[in-house]
Design a protein around this nucleic acid. Structure first.
Length: 554
RNA sequence: GCGCCUGUAGCUCAGCUGGAUAGAGCAACGGACUUCUAAUCCGUAGGUCGCAGGUUCGAAUCCUGCCAGGCGCGCCA
């Protein structure tokens, strides 16, 4: 509907120019917005103010010219008026709205989809937690942000791939292997001194026990590097499998689990370092190799190969991101924890050094989650291993509530996740508020069906019988859905979708409390069934993009 | 010290990349179930958008400088 108004403005402007009222045909991009106040109409445009310069005219005079040349042959437009400094406000005829309901019903699951992506190949990399222990709530937030973003982008015509990067190389993995080995030795009767640097969590013992069952006691009696490596491989494999299960229970799935080690095995790390050495981006200083990230705006150069010859994490990350682009992604989005923000300048430097544009690489920093229970912080010791896992949270509050709550704020502000609130089946808990709409409508439809009423799609009665204020407001909200989707995809802001859903839900609940859908009047009932069915579809579509179920009963 | 994020109602947060009289939800107070689900709704109250300048027709939004909180600044990952 917004597009319709945009066309009105443009044709009016052209007509005014043709009639000689507007001197210039250099028009700005037409912006149409939804006014907050009813008296400002259904839509408004700031076109007159924006073109004041190029027209060399006062905004209100331009606005007048627009209004004078507004197409007269349209039935949807009731009137256009000038207001304030030069806004043109559009008032639509109530009959302009019901066709939106028809669009929703006909488009069904594809309502709101668009093609701004034009098949562009995008990778979203998220979670990517080290395989040294189970996921916690913070990872959960990253998982939901990344996953929902991927769903949104793909709904908007992007060709999306979801990837999890496994840091299965380097120090942490060695430590993991060592930790398991030591716990294994304990199990077979040795007294060991368990260093603080090792992983303290109880899951290490479980892993050791599993390994003991599989390989027998003799395995832990050996004492060499190979055994520790074996432990590491075993433990990492198990942990990743666990992570995969936990994410699956959360409705998060990946197309690719990419191994860091594979970059070393295939020689890609060495290859990219060699290339960068020849091009001079990587240089020797003292006894290490440095990346000239300052050339790309970083505050200091960064080491890629240490004095002892070992590469840094950064080195493999350069190779990794080069690899991403080699695989054909035109755009790469990384979702990171906010504590990694210092890493962004060097990573964008790396992306540019391997020949890509800065805009092709974006990082989303997801802020911290504080876990609470009834307002009190839950202790989340890192080293101690005393933390609540994502799995435990899911078991307690359920995937729907957890996912929705993670999206009730923008990812760039920190979030309090209260277990008690998340569990509550009350209006403190926004998931149920939205889901309840779906259930209520399902219930209406159920009853309608039992009375033999038509509930399968568009009915012409809706053309003339949807005129209540609450009905028009609902339809206007339905009309806004496609743009909400597009905007959240464009700005990479999945939380906008949950906010929209709450708004739509509020409008529906208000409508529901004021008007009955099933009435004595068959035509009216048929019309309202159409509306309510359309609302249900949009709720269902929106929830599905967020990865939340749309129950028929609650 | 430098950098990033945040600062909006008592609390938790939105605010459609610059629009008109800044919005929700909690909490508080007062109302609505014989009806298609009260996990809901209606009403009341609540504001110097951290502070000070600047940019322009117009600023919560953009720029600068302060103030406060969080995080980061390794040849760690």
């Amino acid at each position: 509907m917004k597009l319709f108004v945009r066309d009105l403005v443009l044709t009016a402007a052209r007509a005014a120019h043709a009639a000689g009222v507007l001197p210039s045909d250099d028009f700005p991009a037409v912006e149409v917005q939804w006014p907050k106040i009813d008296s400002h109409g259904d839509f408004s445009t700031n076109f007159a103010m924006l073109s004041a310069k190029s027209q060399k005219m006062a905004p209100r005079r331009i606005a007048q010219a627009l209004v004078d040349h507004m197409p007269k042959d349209t039935k949807q437009l009731a009137r256009a008026e000038i207001a304030g400094p030069g806004f043109v406000n559009f008032f639509l005829h109530p009959a302009a709205w019901p066709p939106v309901v028809r669009q929703v019903l006909e488009a069904d699951r594809t309502y709101g989809a668009c093609d701004i992506g034009r098949g562009q190949s995008v990778q979203v990399e998220f979670v990517s937690a080290n395989p040294t222990g189970p996921l916690h709530v913070g990872h959960g937030r990253g998982a939901v942000v990344g996953d929902t973003l991927a769903r949104l982008l793909s709904f908007c015509g992007y060709n999306v791939q979801r990837e999890y990067y496994i840091n299965d190389s380097g120090r942490q993995i060695q430590t993991l292997g060592h930790s398991v080995l030591l716990r294994g030795r304990e199990l077979v009767g040795h007294t060991v001194n368990f260093p603080e640097a090792c992983y303290q969590g109880g899951y290490i013992r479980t892993l050791a026990k599993d390994l003991l069952e599989e390989r027998g006691a003799a395995f832990f009696e050996q004492d060499d590097e190979a055994v520790a490596a074996e432990c590491a491989r075993f433990a990492a494999g198990r942990i990743i499998a666990g992570i995969r299960d936990d994410l699956g229970a959360f409705g998060v799935f990946f197309d690719e689990w990419f191994s860091e080690q594979s970059l070393y095995d295939s020689g890609q790390v060495d290859a990219v370092l060699d290339d960068l050495k020849t091009s001079g981006v990587v240089y020797a200083h003292e006894d290490a190799w440095w990346f000239r990230t300052t050339d790309f705006g970083d505050e200091k150069d960064r080491v890629v190969v240490r004095g002892d010859g070992r590469t840094t994490y950064f080195a493999s990350d350069i190779a990794y991101h080069q690899n991403k682009f080699h695989r054909g992604f035109e755009r790469v989005i990384d979702v990171w924890g906010a504590d990694h923000h210092g890493y962004i300048p060097r990573m964008t430097a790396a992306v540019q050094a391997v020949g890509r544009r800065r805009e092709q690489f974006q990082v989303l920093l997801v802020q911290l989650v504080s876990l609470l229970r009834g307002g009190q912080p839950v202790a989340m010791g890192k080293r101690s291993g005393e933390f609540i896992t994502l799995r435990e949270v899911l078991d307690e509050v359920g995937s729907d509530a957890a996912r929705f709550i993670f999206l009730t704020r923008g990812y760039d502000s920190s979030l309090d996740f209260d277990l008690e609130v998340a569990k509550q089946q009350s209006n403190d808990n926004p998931v149920y508020y939205v889901q309840y709409v779906h259930a209520r409508i399902a219930s209406i439809l159920h009853k309608a069906a039992s009375q033999g009423l038509p509930i399968d799609g568009w009915h012409e009665a809706a053309e003339v019988h949807l005129g209540e204020v609450e009905e028009i407001q609902l339809i206007k909200a339905l009309d806004r859905y496609p743009e909400t989707i597009e905007q959240s995809a464009k700005t990479l802001a999945p939380h906008r979708l949950t906010f929209y859903l709450r708004e739509l839900a509020a409008l529906f609940h208000a409508y529901y409390n004021k008007h009955r859908v099933l009435t004595e009047d068959i035509q009216l009932t048929a019309a309202r069934l159409c509306l309510v069915l359309a609302v249900q579809k949009v709720i269902r579509n929106g929830l599905s993009l967020v990865g939340v179920s749309a129950p028929d009963r609650m």
